[in-house]
Amino acid sequence: MLAFALKRLALALLVALTVSIISFSLLRLSGDLAQALAGPSATAADVEAVRKAYGLDQPLWVQYLAWARQALHGDLGTSFFFKEPVAAMIAARLPVTMTLGVSALLFALLVALPLGILAALKPNSWVDRLALTLSVVGQALPSFWFALMLMILFGLKLRWLPISGTASWKSFVMPAIALGYYGMPTFMRLTRAGMMEVLASDYIRTARAKGLRAPAILLKHALRNAIVPVVAVAAVQLGFFLGGSIVIESVFALHGVGYLGWESISRADFPVVQAIVLVLALFYIVLTLLADLLNAFLDPRIRVG
């Protein structure tokens, strides 16, 4: 278990390093930083002064190391547009994105798990067909369009839910559905396939031969084994939700990290974009690492090697 964990950790660190180099390059590729920092009205001499002051005349790898050292200390640079520390801007918006991501995940799991289990218990029944239809439809729905349709229905026609803002939990219902619906088919197919495989396994037959009742077999013997891959994928999917929330946040004007990223791209505020790419990638890396470790922990074959 320890060797496994260390190996995973090493890979995660290596990926994090690479991602940081990529997001660093993103900022450097966006144009002449000194010019951007000095402002449009600066003279050539001013720009050169800024270049010296910020160390932009140094070789790129020196600049990267300096940037990385700052980043490790929580300093992700300064926004061109707001002249504020980027780290603080992201921190202020992170709770909205996290709330959205987690509630989207919960929504997806709450729909997908029961449907997937029922579909596996009765293949080719109407539940199975419904589950299949929902998942086929879910994978084809453009999320922003689905979000707009939800807005027209629940926000405008029925007036049940607010169509923007973050005033109460109600504001998160539609965004969570719109974001979570996209991930639901994955969970459902995984649950169904896992459940079918487990239900056909020898140890389920052993459990039945012991005379165990259907609920005990289902909850104790089948679900436990079928759910392991779902748990791992759920963590990864949360990473995707956080990274993909940009579309939904912009539709519902939720001022989360994704929305900030979108605005910053429009404003060519690349220090912010760079930092958001880095933060979201780090979230994903940490979540996949956790998923791997959780997976190993849930499977005694890996845990008790």
């Binding site: 020898d202 140890y203 013997h221 436990r224 084994n225």
Partner: peptide, 8 residues
């Protein structure tokens, strides 16, 4: 080999 549940 497969008749026992690996999780318990």
């Amino acid at each position: 080999m497969t008749a026992l549940n690996p999780a318990y």
